[in-house]
Design a protein around this nucleic acid. Structure first.
Lengths: 188, 188
DNA sequence: AGCATTTCTTAAACTACTTTAATTTTATTC
DNA sequence: GAATAAAATTAAAGTAGTTTAAGAAATGCT
């Protein structure tokens, strides 16, 4: 649980007592590689703070093809946060790309912490803000960057991840074909 | 103010008294065509509910080129909502594309309504959720649609707007050159 | 109303990216 | 550890989108 405490403290100051109350509400779970943690239209029962491993979040386009929206790795939050909070059905799919260990929290405990610990409410607001910021940044990149520039940015944003996951998943994230990504990599 | 009341009521049920308290906190303002309502790094003093006209929200890329992120028209909210709420400096630029009339609300009054009127807090949560949903949808479109498909979707999402604003702004929103948009339109 | 400026269109040449398909390399499974 | 499946590479041909440039149309300005 230390990782989660550290993550919270990196954004705001909070007493150790309150951190204990928060971390007690989380349960550690393991997901083997390839397992689906969530499929779209499922009820969103929990969200995750990842301790080890990595996952991809993807959606289907109108033709039924998968597109990766985000990857998540150590010390990142992931999950269909919006639909979790709203109690609406999932719009995302989430799949482990490695054997993954994560802390999970139920809606009930989440709501309890929101009410009881103002710092937790603040923290979640920061999480949402960061997500929103990342989304806007990505929209800008998609309309203003070439595939190569997006790939370079990916390498920065997700250090080492390119060695851990398959290139077809990176290509899907970038919105290009695996063949073209392969070509971009050769050029360097 | 009727438009704003109707907009709120379209998402949740609320008493007329509370609606009156809410709408009293808004001030109507006019912005002539071409005027900037916000520039990045400005302090975000207000957000807007638009009664007539339209505006564009744009950002600069690393090369200093402008890219339109959203358009807003009658009965839409706009403004740099995230940075307004957080008190952080603007990351967006906003410019009127037509003579525009909008209701504006200050941070002070916004915070007052959030505290006093639970329905308003709920309403703003819905606004954020919709924005987030729209962003994710746009990311998916950018990585999975062709320019022509994005243009068709734009026409649906912003009915009649294509007759009101210049094509170069639409091209910028779609992430293509005005010349290519012109070609797409001819084809039909 | 008339001149200047901006926007739109067209077309030709170019570049970024896709498709298809065959081959090699890497991972998975029994 | 061999067999099978999945992923990555390469290359050729095709398509989507850009660039440049020049003329036409629309808009803004006094």
């Amino acid at each position: 649980m230390k990782e989660l405490s550290e993550h919270i403290k990196s954004f705001l100051s909070i007493s150790e007592d309150k951190l204990t109350i928060i971390t007690e509400k989380f349960v550690q779970k393991n997901f083997p590689k390839k397992e689906h943690l969530l499929r779209s239209s499922d009820r969103v029962r929990e969200v995750y703070f990842i301790l080890s491993g990595c996952v991809r979040t993807y959606v289907y386009d109108v033709n039924g093809a998968e597109h990766n929206i985000t990857f998540s790795m150590e010390n990142w939050w992931f999950g269909d946060l919006q639909n979790f909070v709203n109690g609406s059905p999932a719009s995302h799919n989430i799949q482990a790309l490695e054997d993954t260990t994560a802390l999970t929290i139920s809606k009930q405990n989440w709501d309890f912490l929101l009410q009881e610990i103002p710092e937790f409410a603040n923290y979640t607001r920061i999480l949402f803000r960061n997500t929103m910021f990342a989304h806007e940044n990505r929209i800008l990149q998609n309309i203003s960057f070439t595939a190569e520039e997006r790939y370079q940015y990916f390498l920065k944003q997700y250090p080492n991840l390119s060695q851990r996951i398959s290139q077809k998943h990176i290509a899907s994230y970038l919105g290009i074909t695996p063949e073209f990504l392969s070509m971009l990599r050769r050029k360097k």
